[in-house]
Computed example of a mutant assay.
Amino acid sequence: MTGNRRALALSMGDPAGIGPDLALAAWTNRAELELPAFLIIGDLAMLAERAELLGLDVPLVETSPEDAVAKFGIALPVLPVALAKPVIAGTPDPANAEAVIEAIRLAVELTTASRTRAVVTNPIAKSVLYASGFGFPGHTEYLAHLASETAGHPVMPVMLLAGPDLRVAPVTIHIPLRQVAEALTTQMIVETAGIVARDLASRFGLKAPRIAISGLNPHAGEDGALGSEDADIIVPAIAELQAAGIQAFGPLPADTMFHAEARENYDAAICMYHDQALIPAKTLGFHDSVNATLGLPFIRTSPDHGTAFSLAGKGEARFDSLVAAIKLAAKMANTEAETKILHALSRV
């Protein structure tokens, strides 16, 4: 089975959050939104109860991944993963953490086995998973663990925030700001930018992507007056990237690299820490940006927001970001397949 004959694998996320609401609403509007087929991995009873709570007429059908595309037009395909306890919308329960994790694992397993096209993950609440003994900082790290198990070697994931006006990736992610300067290395920047450049070519169809590299300190260090890290760590990374044939440039002052005219000069930006990247990404595209994890042997996207427990079950949550994540996952899968075909033909 290839291409559009396979569905996307969508994990349910935290069942007490808005993930189920978004999936149900997206399916309800599938024709108008021109959505590709997706298979939600989650609890059937929970989804039925949530649809009733939201007043949505969503027929649910338990199905295999192979039959999901055929069923998608008439019902929301579900691959069941049973929850341990009934769900109250807006009230997370660590007792259900195991099922949340299993839904993610299954999505990866199915996609790795080419039974589904890509992984799309609904939001999880890390604190809820931690209470059950979850040993990873977040979604991305767990996905990298699963990928490493399959590949047989460590896999480096890169978080790319992709919106209609900006693509940006942080080098360091979930660490305290005071630790960034100590953690940052030339090799980390080279590896992050290299993965972004490679995946922009293979999964986004950009043959020679232009990569802007931010500085760490204000004004990119002001020639050393505001810190030596830009000259000592970032400049050598850019030189190494350029020597490898990657169109990287910088370091650029982060306060002037995200306005409209500046963004015309690059296809993606690499920033040195979490908020330096995510503040402009969420400012420019809060409702329609997508979190795409690059560097994995499978495609993974996710809405760029959290569980929003306060909105769960109320019909107030916007599904823009999930819709964007679904569409981007399908587009990336199509582009990757086309790239592989062209590569194979070029070797004949």
Results as ranks from 00 to 15, higher is better:
Trp27Cys: 05
Ala75Phe: 01
Leu24Gly: 12
Leu60Val: 12
Ala25Thr: 15
Glu66Gln: 09
Ala125Asn: 15
Arg105Pro: 04
Ala84His: 09
Asn29Gln: 15
Glu98Phe: 03
Thr116Ala: 11
Ser132Lys: 09
Val100Pro: 03
Arg30Pro: 09
Leu39Cys: 09
Ser114Trp: 02
Ile41Cys: 08
Ser127Leu: 04
Leu129Met: 14
Val128Pro: 06
Ala89His: 03
Ala82Ser: 12
Glu66Leu: 01
Leu39Ala: 05
Ile101Gly: 05
Leu47Phe: 11
Val128Ser: 05
Leu24Ser: 08
Gly73Val: 00
Leu106Met: 09
Leu106Lys: 11
Ala25Tyr: 00
Phe72Arg: 09
Asn96Leu: 02
Ala97Ile: 06
Leu110Cys: 04
Ala103Cys: 13
Ser114Thr: 04
Ala89Glu: 08
Ala125Lys: 08
Leu106Tyr: 02
Pro123Phe: 07
Ser132Asn: 08
Val61His: 11
Asp93Gln: 06
Lys71Cys: 11
Gly135Lys: 01
Ala125Gly: 12
Leu44Ser: 11
Glu32Gln: 11
Glu32Trp: 01
Pro86Phe: 07
Pro80Asn: 05
Ser64Ala: 14
Leu110Ser: 03
Val78His: 02
Val128Met: 12
Ala70Arg: 12
Leu83Val: 03
Glu109Phe: 07
Gly73Phe: 00
Pro77Val: 04
Ala26Glu: 07
Gly42Lys: 06
Ala97Lys: 08
Ala97Asp: 11
Glu98Tyr: 02
Lys85Trp: 00
Ala103Asn: 02
Ser127Asn: 14
Arg115Asn: 09
Val58Gly: 06
Leu44Gln: 13
Gly42Ala: 07
Glu49Val: 01
Lys85Thr: 08
Phe136Val: 00
Thr28Ala: 15
Glu52Asn: 13
Val87Thr: 12
Phe136Arg: 00
Ala82Gly: 01
Asn29Glu: 15
Ala37Ser: 15
Ala23Asn: 12
Glu109Arg: 14
Val69Glu: 01
Val108Gln: 02
Thr28His: 14
Pro86Gly: 08
Asp93Asn: 15
Phe72Thr: 11
Asp67Arg: 09
Ala131Leu: 10
Pro86Ala: 08
Ala131Ser: 12
Ile40Thr: 15
Ala45Asn: 11
Leu83Ser: 06
Leu83Asp: 08
Glu62Cys: 10
Ala48Pro: 06
Thr112Met: 11
Ala97Pro: 10
Ile74Ser: 14
Asn29Asp: 15
Ala89Asp: 07
